[in-house]
Design a protein around this nucleic acid. Structure first.
Lengths: 110, 110
DNA sequence: CGGAATCCTGCCCGATACTG
DNA sequence: CAGTATCGGGCAGGATTCCG
């Protein structure tokens, strides 16, 4: 079966997509922003997103190497959806009374 | 970590939530609508959604037993988000050229 | 009808080490 | 800096059986 879960499911995809919502970012920038993910998992997830057409991988052949990731047009279209999901998450958080929810918007605040 | 993935992640949650968007449904109705899920998985997933406060479980003590599931207010608020996600999925599907994507909206058509 | 209880399996995720 | 390669553990997901 082919659902949205295969595109944005998994532990890191939504977080990464949200990170790229305003600008392209280098591998190391992404890793610094999400320290909990291992290098190999980050690579795997980025490859998944790339092969699904949600992000673009631009290689700058120089020393040291530089690789930038950015959203594709179809990936850009997903951002408002993630925004809404995050807004709902805040609602839910207040409703439940928990304060430790990690949401894309949390990053958007600073 | 506590993210939206723990609430609507997993293989069946979004499908079930969407099924309940317009009315309460019995266990057997849900199962008929989603034949691929096993009975035990359906039970587990419904329990998860219930304990997360997204759906309500109403037991009618009669013979034969009858149990109805419906969205809670906070669950209702999630529906527009799923609608947007489904709309994006249709966009993505046309963009990629696949026609076998299973989306909530597919059910909304009939 | 709507479960509960068990057992099992695949693969997602991650730890670690090495490289152009 | 931005990766690969290898090796597993653990948990989500599922098959099966039994029950009020």
């Amino acid at each position: 079966m082919f659902t949205a879960q295969s595109l944005i499911g998994g532990k890191w995809k939504v977080i990464i997509l949200w990170l790229l919502h305003d600008s392209a970012r280098r591998f190391s920038e992404i890793h610094r922003a999400i320290p909990d993910v291992t290098q190999s998992m980050l690579t795997n997830t980025l490859r998944d997103l790339e092969s699904d057409g949600l992000i673009h991988r631009e290689i700058y052949r120089q020393v040291p190497p530089k690789v930038e990731y950015s959203l594709t047009p179809i990936g850009q279209k997903l951002i408002p959806v993630l925004q809404m999901l995050g807004d709902w998450g805040i609602d839910y958080m207040e409703h439940i009374g928990r304060t430790d929810m990690v949401l894309p918007e949390a990053d958007a605040q600073h």
